[in-house]
Nucleic acid binder design. Sequence first.
RNA 1: GCCCGCAUCGUCUAGCGGUCAGGACAUCACCCUUUCAAGGUGGUAACCGGGGUUCGACUCCCCGUGCGGGUACCA
Length: 487
Amino acid sequence: MGELPGNRRLRFAPSPTGELHIGNVRTALFSYCLAGERGRFLVRIEDTDRERYRPESVPGYLETLDWLGLRWDEGPDRGGPCAPYVESERLPLYATAAERLVALGAAYPCFCSRERLDQLRAAQRVAGLPTRYDGHCRTISAQEAGERRAGGEAAVTRLRVPPGESRWDDLVLGPQRFDNETVDDQVLLKSDGFPTYHLAQVVDDHLMGITQVVRAVEWLPSTPKHLITYAALGWVPPQFAHVPLVLGPDHSKLSKRHGAQTVSELRQLGYLPEAVVNFLAFLGWSPGTEEEIFSLAELRQRMSFERLQSSPAVFDRQRLDYLNGVWIRRLPVETLAERILPWLPATPRDRLVALAAMVQERIRRLDEVPQLVAFAFSEPEASAEALCSELPRATARAFLERARAALPGPQGTLQDRLREIANELRSDAELGSQLPEKQFVRASMQVLRLGLTSARVSPPLTDVVAYLGAERTEARIAAALERLSAE
RNA sequence: GCCCGCAUCGUCUAGCGGUCAGGACAUCACCCUUUCAAGGUGGUAACCGGGGUUCGACUCCCCGUGCGGGUACCA
């Protein structure tokens, strides 16, 4: 077993039942980072529940992990020394383990019907007792079991929880102790021949040489079952790290009603993988310094079990927005140009870079891009009313006319020239204004902005003019003037 | 019901017996600014409650409370 590659070996074992939830992905991120640069990160598909199994979700999961940059060294698509990495393809391994456990007396066949189990639990509940299996089939002899099976009776295999207690030192929560009295005789092998999570996890983590299991704290109560199984099989268990839950704004477990909860939703909202990773990392981890911007590579270098948080964290979109803005500004313009590509109509590369440069400092999410640069893709159509919402019609017209005349000339000075024009106009006897200089300049610029982009919010005018070019700019001003003149 | 976990500003967090309880997001004010941003400066804002232990508790222990999880032939 010592020949498996990698120092640490950590895994992510999602169940293909839909889409990757933010909580799942954070666990994957932690596992990936905690494996460290010298360790290995593996992906294993946990498709042991035939009822909820949705095969089409597997490619989506892998795509999501890939988008985030969580490269796995071993997995269903790329194989590895422990292949296959899909549990439904490993059934014989679980069956063998179950048989061994029964032979060892650590597990036993159970023939109880669902009805009996339901009634049992209901009765226990009413009596104020913990709801657990009562051991009804614990004493069935091997011979009787064989006969009943031969007779067509369906059976499951249950773990025979021994008396005593289960202890382990959790990497996040510290020393844990469970009285085995409170641990149920868990079903390990279902009647359909598939293992439950509890068996599959133990068998696979052992066979795959997993050194640390990182999973959500909701698994804490079942850890004793796993420990008992490892011990019965004579295997050394991995270390366990139970990470706290991710909560919605109302502090309940994150769910649909909290809005975006899957990674693909975040992606559609215009979040960068860099930002999502950075954000998720701080939901349960911190470096202990005041640094807060981390790339995935840095996280993989820095993250350690010792600094994992034990209390749950609330998912806060505002903070994600902030981090996303930070990462947008950190990206080289060329890269940002690639990222905004899907958000815009087909555009030549150099134009895309120009647009990226214009929006880079003013957006927090990619989905803001289309509106901000709409001027590049459609002719403005600001109405006459809109155009003179800032200044009297005659004044607005005068400014546009003078601006048009001032257009030719070095771009660098355009800003100054426009300001000069506005100031001259302000002191004009007829067309002038009582507005303070600042406000008048501002109003004038808004008229021009409206004429050029038909938007009240746009990239800086000089950028817009530079992007449009003198010819198109002039045409747009002319069109605006025409609308202003028309009745 | 039974078992278990968690508990610092609204949020993410630092703190690991002695700090004016720090940073960030959000928020407010101001500055910069032709819009929106970005940036700068400053402000408001927290140790759940009660007992202990200790010369001294946000830090350790107990109880309570609150929140959360588990209690399936789901993961």
